[in-house]
């Protein structure tokens, strides 16, 4: 699995001219050291992952102040549970993003549930637009690869995956947003992810 994970993104403190390859820090090692209470290692972990984690949380939660709060909680959880990370079960970045994504989704479903549902229709008609600016400035090659992979999905698969993962909607909500028969959105999400996995797993 780990070979399919993207390289760790640059941290905000490690900004360098675009195109310059940075040696990716070993996130598993940073997590292991964090578990022993090494705050400096945890700081490096934050620098190496914060753009990814905060960006994903912001995407799902939308509200910047709430995203900041969720991101802080995520990193506290990561620090506290760092000893429970098992490198045999996935990459360190995947572990972090899994915690972050669930925290973001749980937050929007609890506190903002009603407002978000009202906005749902608008979101669907607007479509899911990516932050082109961020994409242009960072990891452009990787972003292109992901975009190409997304292009291999059917329209319905792509929308279902994006609304679920980036929109934070349940498969039932996704079905309503896309006018799919109830119960079929989960199949579209799975089919889309399988195609994404297979495309990204192939030659870059």
């Amino acid at each position: 699995m780990m070979d399919r994970m993207p390289a760790a993104p640059e941290g905000p403190r490690a900004r360098r001219p675009s195109g310059a390859a940075a040696p990716a820090p070993d996130l598993s090692d940073l997590l292991r050291r964090s578990a022993r209470g090494e705050e400096e290692a945890f700081g490096q972990l934050y620098d190496a992952t914060a753009r990814r984690v905060y960006g994903l949380v912001l995407r799902v939660v939308r509200d910047p102040a709430m995203s900041e709060e969720v991101t802080q909680e995520v990193y506290l959880d990561v620090w506290r549970t760092s000893s429970r990370f098992d490198p045999d079960r996935g990459s360190a970045l995947s572990w972090l993003l899994t915690i972050a994504h669930r925290a973001a989704v749980d937050r929007v479903r609890s506190s903002e549930a009603s407002r978000r549902r009202e906005d749902a229709h608008a979101a669907a008609t607007r479509g899911v637009a990516f932050d082109e600016t961020a994409e242009a400035a960072h990891g452009a090659l990787e972003a292109q690869r992901v975009r190409r992979a997304l292009g291999t999905l059917t329209e319905v698969q792509r929308s279902a995956v994006e609304l679920a993962f980036l929109g934070g909607y349940t498969h039932t909500e996704v079905a309503r947003l896309l006018d799919l028969p109830l119960g079929t959105a989960k199949t579209r999400i799975r089919d889309g992810l399988i195609r994404l996995r297979d495309t990204l797993g192939g030659p870059a």
């Binding site: 993003l97 961020a134 994409e135 992901v146 997304l150």
Partner: peptide, 8 residues
């Protein structure tokens, strides 16, 4: 999670 490359 690779979609995260688009949301940094």
């Amino acid at each position: 999670q690779t979609l995260g490359a688009l949301t940094e």
